[in-house]
Nucleic acid binder design. Sequence first.
DNA 1: CCATTTCGTTGGTGACACCAACGATATGAC
DNA 2: GTCATATCGTTGGTGTCACCAACGAAATGG
Lengths: 149, 149
Amino acid sequence: MESTPSRLATKASWLVSQTAVHVRRLIGDEFAAAGSRGYHYRVLAALQEFGPASQAELGRRCRMDRSDVVQAVTELERQSFVERSADPADRRRNIVTITGAGRQQLRRLDRTLDTVQDELLAPLSTAERQTLVALLAKVVKHHGDTPTS
Amino acid sequence: MESTPSRLATKASWLVSQTAVHVRRLIGDEFAAAGSRGYHYRVLAALQEFGPASQAELGRRCRMDRSDVVQAVTELERQSFVERSADPADRRRNIVTITGAGRQQLRRLDRTLDTVQDELLAPLSTAERQTLVALLAKVVKHHGDTPTS
DNA sequence: CCATTTCGTTGGTGACACCAACGATATGAC
DNA sequence: GTCATATCGTTGGTGTCACCAACGAAATGG
C-alpha cells in the first residue's frame, strides 16, 4: 500500500479531516438506511432535550444555517417526525415540535450512533477515548467561544 | 448563547466533525487566497515527497478518488504547478511532475498550514497536542488498515 | 489468446457548510 | 408614534470533499 505524504500524516488538520471522513462514512450508511441524515438527528436531538423551538434557535443550537434548518424541518415534517406551527406570540417564528414517531426515530438513531462510536474508537482504550473526547471538546469549545464572524 | 444538545456535545463523532468544520474554515480561506484548495495541496505534497507519479498512485496516496485526481491535476497544470506527460513504459498512465512554481506554491501552503495548526490547537498545551495527534493517528491508521471496501 | 485488471476520463450524486436577498414582523431609540 | 434596525423563515444559489458508474485504451496473467 502506498503511504501518504508525511506532510499530511503528521498534521492535526489532516488527521481530524480524515477521521471526520470515517465518521461520515459510518454514520452516512446507517442513517441512510433509517431514512435520515446528520442534520435530521441534530434537530431531533435539540427538540428532545430542550423542547419545542423556533427554527432559528434550532440552527444556533445545532450549528446549522437557517436555510438548512428549513430543509431539514421540511423533510422531518414530511416524515411526521416533527410538527411546524406558527408562534402566536411572534408571527415571524415557527414553533417546531417533536412527535412520538420522532422520538422513536431519535432513539433508533441514538442506538446506531452508539455502535458507530465503538467502531470509530475501536483502536483506543477506554482511557484513551476519554482523553480524545476531552481534548476535542476543548478545541471545539475554544472555537465556539471565539467565533470566526 | 444557546447550548448544543448534550447528545451531540459528548459524542466523539460530533466533536470530530465539528473540529473538521473548523479545519475546513481555517484552511479554506487561506488556501482560496492562494488560489488552491485541499486537493491541490495533497497532490503537490505527494509529488514533492515521492517524486513524479501516476494519477492513480496520487489518488491512493492522498486518499482521493481517481476522478478527483483528474480535476485537481488539470487545475494544477493550468496554474503551471505540475506537468502531465505520457508514460512511455505504460501508455495507460500519465506521469505527473511538480514544477518549480509548484514547489514554491507548496512552500507557501505549508507555511499557512503551520499557522492553521497553531490556531486550531490554540487551547491545548504542547503535550496535549502531541497526545491528540497520536490518538487520531491511531484511529486513522486503524481504519486505513481495515478499509471499508 | 482471452479474461481480467488497471488507468484516465467524463459526468453524474450526496452531505455539509455557507451566502445573498426577500418580505414579513418585532423591537428600540428618539 | 415613527422610523431605523434587527430577526425570522424562505428561496435559490455556491463550494468542497467524497464517491459512483461507465467507457475506451492499454497492460497483464493464465
